[in-house]
Nucleic acid binder design. Structure first.
Lengths: 340, 340
DNA sequence: CTGAAAGCGCTTACAG
DNA sequence: CTGAAAGCGCTTACAG
């Protein structure tokens, strides 16, 4: 490939001339090589290499009415964005899944009302073909806007209140909560507490449901004192654990709805002089670096983030292809480390 | 504004018709309103509102030969990307600084050789006007590629080995190291250790230089045993601290070249039964959430990340405007909390 | 200050 | 299978 930033970039015309065919034929080669003779195909490919031709996406988009790019919309309060490692994992995964289709990812951050306005304006300006949406909270206005604008959108996680309109990829949250709690019960623990996420998030709501289900399956009674809520941050996990230790000093296990909160809970347990897992067994959720890096290694429920991203991109491409919105639910699995 | 995803989007032609002027006049209004009569200006603006017109960027780019978007290139090994909160801060800051200019940010992750190839191909395809580059390590091949392709590029941090070719925004790393160490000396500490970053990064190299300068200014001798190296991760900070405690059990302070490593160092000190700041005073670097959230609050050197991002974008726009590459060095400041 | 027109680089029926 | 041609929606000299 000849790269030359100084000279005019070669166009389809240059390739056609070099290959001795028409512009139409070059274009056909570029778009899948259908209805092209083997000889022409070979000539054009050679000419492309020779000239260092790269398609001008703007010219292409102008006629196809497609931008060939998608927006990744992160609609979370700022603090979350900074702290929660899952966003980074999702962003990275989606970038790479799209790159595999040669599609660039436009990052849009919409964590304030003016930003949301701007993002919606940008989206409705036709700059992108579709959107990948990451927003955990129910009632986020961006969700409704995208849906009503008819922008092909795939949400990450259950879009509470818009399950019917939007395509989405979620993990089996309830099963994760059940798995974690059943594991603790299987260890012989009977006073199993839980630190949930916000209840207006699927992760908050459904992991708790799984917890309750596991308790009932294990024949363990339900105790309101063993349930406290956090907001997925490390400090909230620590505060929640301190709260639990006050309310239920006899607890012997805790299922925490995120690894980050679990780390905070471990801090609190250490300060309270409780050994882990001896006195209190702990299971987190996510299998993020917060679980695998650092000591002790955190037993947790693994979310298949890479797979989530791949499915999101697959679903979005299907939408762009005219298919109906679909939902994908992915399985989770327990990862045993040191804390339970 | 009328948004209608069903109907054909209005074009400049529709606006011209509604305003009773030619397409050229509408275009002039769109591009700054120069050489347009007040009456025409008003009519066009009204027509734009009425029709809900939004410019088709592809058509515009096709004629202007400018994409109007820039790439944010993150060229770091995967682990770093996941753990280091600074990348997230930079990404967010640049996204917002660009959004203020109505420019979208294309995220490009180049942490493996195939990815680097892809990113360079994408960039050289003319899809973007310029690049914001985040890559801490010297000798990163992407830097040279961008420079030789003539892509307007602004680096975050000193681009070691390419200081003359590339525009960049950096903080005064050496001054940060000096400030932190001088603060420790001012506290009466005399056995001041340091945990550096990798020495092929400006942050590793220059913060260490500042440390040495402060020692010499304070009349404290230099002791090789008090210097160990980490890689900016939390676990590396912990390991480095353990190493230091073995090599120099009498140390009474430590300057750590990142907050995350400092957290790891605090873990090690706690395990070793050293009180902070009583036995050992600790200063970090960055003023990231790792410093402000969590206990104890970490005394640290604040990097003005928001400002860094704004300057990067300003510099890039200047480059796109034909100006010569410039460098901006931003000041740092000490933030006192609990650990020193 | 304004309009008519050329042209940016593609794709895609259409006719052959 | 292939070429000639129209057209996507803009911007920008050019002439007035």
């Amino acid at each position: 490939m000849v790269v030359d930033s100084g000279r005019r970039r070669p166009t389809i015309e240059d390739v056609a001339a070099a290959a001795g065919v028409s512009r139409g034929t070059v274009s056909r080669v570029l778009n899948g090589g259908i209805n092209v003779s083997p000889a022409a195909l070979a000539a054009v490919n050679k000419a492309i290499k020779q000239t260092g031709y790269v398609v001008n996406t703007h010219a292409r988009s102008l006629v196809t009415q497609r931008s060939g790019s998608v927006a990744f919309i992160l609609s979370e309060p700022q603090e979350k964005f900074f702290e929660d490692p899952n966003f980074q994992v999702l962003l990275r995964g989606c970038t790479q899944a799209l790159a595999a289709h040669d599609m660039p990812l436009l990052l849009s951050i919409a964590d304030s009302e003016p930003d949301r306005e701007r993002v919606v304006r940008f989206i409705s300006g036709g700059h992108i073909d579709g959107a990948l949406l990451v927003s955990t909270h129910a009632g986020n206005p961006v969700i409704g806007r995208l849906a009503s604008l008819g922008i092909p959108t795939v949400a990450c996680g259950l879009p509470i209140g818009h399950e019917q309109e939007l395509a989405y990829v979620a993990v089996n949250e309830a099963e994760g909560g059940r798995l974690a709690t059943a594991h603790l019960a299987g260890l012989g623990r009977r006073r199993i507490a839980t630190i949930t996420g916000p209840l207006d998030t699927p992760g908050g709501r459904d992991r708790l449901a799984g917890y309750r289900e596991a308790l009932s399956q294990a024949g363990i009674g339900y105790d309101q004192n063993l349930i406290v809520h956090g907001d997925y941050t490390r400090v909230s996990g620590q505060a929640a654990m301190e709260d639990l230790l006050r309310r239920a000093p006899d607890l012997d296990a805790v299922f925490v709805a995120s690894d980050l909160m679990a780390r905070g809970a471990l801090d609190a347990l250490e300060r309270a002089g409780r050994s882990v897992p001896g006195d209190v067994a702990v299971v987190g959720f996510d299998d993020s670096p917060a679980a695998s890096a650092g000591r002790p290694g955190l037993t947790t429920v693994r979310q298949p983030f890479k797979r989530v991203c791949e499915e999101m991109v697959r679903l979005l491409l299907a939408l762009l292809d005219g298919q109906e919105p679909a939902a994908v639910i992915l399985p989770v699995e327990l990862v045993r480390r040191d804390t339970a």
